[in-house]
């Protein structure tokens, strides 16, 4: 499989916008510069064509920011995001997205559709603007995509408020797919849906992925969903990828102590005879404004030693398909 998405040393910082007075005060030494969050730091990542990569972690770990950088919604502060050898966004002070080949689906299907637009118009807007379909053929085009996501044709003439969460998420999927992307970035696409509806949407993703040969970046905090959908998994902690590898292998025998702790903390369905269905991680998630030095996880880690405070471990290959960023990884 050829490589389709490539991130090279990608970082993203967010700072409070400083007004003129504040900037002058900082320049005169009267005030501190606004605090900066490194939401993503030094991430190297590749996604092969046709692969489904799961990106997991707790809130504030930078998984959504990374997804937005790959989708061309946010420019990286440093490094490059590439799709098929070309930058996803241009360069300069105000970079814009230069490709339609990557599209994104968001968690909240209620927020991602304009309430005053009919579904048909919402789906055909992008493809018409980019010349993927002639305005005269838009109707048939929209109906085709509605069918692909399991919705009847008359949906095109209705408004978003007339649909349930699951149906709206289908519309959002149809709208992203109508741009004929190669890569689909899905940010918690089933998190706001009920269990029975979740299964329907997961099945839809599995079918569409196979039929359209899609490459997926699947961002989720739900490891059960990721295990089901993704070939490979990347686990993030405070802006860094700490472990990456084939989903089954990583989930059954993680190398990074954080990956182990995260997996252990998720309650499993306890059936007859099961005991201790989950084990909490000690301590709290540190503030991303002031992450601990060295390995960000060392303050909560039982394996931590002095070197973990001094030096932050790099993501290093372990075997042909796995990599881990830890000075003292768990041995198999």
């Amino acid at each position: 499989m050829s490589e389709l998405v490539r991130l090279e040393k990608v970082s993203r910082r967010f700072a409070q916008p400083a007004g003129l007075t504040r900037r002058l005060a900082v320049a005169a030494g009267l005030s501190q510069p606004p605090s900066v969050v490194r939401a993503v730091s030094d991430v190297d990542l590749t996604i092969r064509a046709g692969e489904a990569l799961g990106l997991v972690g707790e809130s504030g770990c930078g998984k959504s920011t990374l997804g937005r950088i790959i989708a061309g919604i946010l420019p990286p502060s440093e490094g490059r995001a590439m799709l098929d050898g070309a930058r996803v966004m241009g360069e300069g002070r105000r970079p814009v997205k230069t490709t339609t080949r990557v599209q994104m689906i968001f968690q909240d299907p209620f927020a991602s559709l304009d309430p005053r637009w009919k579904i048909g118009a919402a789906i055909s807007e992008g493809p018409i603007a980019h010349g993927l379909v002639a305005p005269s053929e838009a109707r048939a085009f929209v109906v085709g995509w509605l069918q692909a996501v399991g919705l009847p044709p008359d949906v095109a003439d209705r408004y978003p408020h007339q649909f349930s969460g699951g149906q709206r998420q289908r519309v959002a999927i149809a709208r992203a797919l109508a741009m004929k992307p190669d890569v689909l970035v899905c940010d918690e696409p089933v998190a706001s849906l009920d269990v029975s509806i979740q299964a329907q949407i997961i099945n839809l993703f599995l079918t569409l992925r196979r039929e359209l040969d899609l490459t997926l970046l699947f961002i989720s905090h739900d490891l059960g969903v990721v295990r089901h959908v993704c070939d490979r998994i990347a686990i993030m902690y405070l802006g860094r990828i700490v472990e990456m590898g084939p989903t089954q292998v990583v989930m059954s025998a993680p190398l990074h102590p954080y990956a182990r702790a995260l997996l252990d903390s998720i309650p499993r369905l306890a059936l007859e005879g099961d005991e201790a269905a989950f084990r909490p991680i000690a301590g709290e998630l540190p503030s991303p404004l002031a992450p601990p030095p060295g390995c960000h996880f060392h303050v909560r880690c039982r394996r931590a030693a002095e070197s973990c405070i001094r030096q932050s471990p790099l993501l290093t290959p372990r075997g042909p398909s796995r990599s881990v960023a830890c000075h003292f990884p768990i041995e198999e």
């Binding site: 699951g166 029975s196 299964a199 329907q200 599995l206 059960g224 959908v229 369905l269």
Partner: peptide, 21 residues
Amino acid sequence: LLDSLPAHATPGTALRQIPGS
């Protein structure tokens, strides 16, 4: 509900979904 959970299915296979809403 139990069948809808991905935890008990073989990864990559279709989940047994409850039809409708």
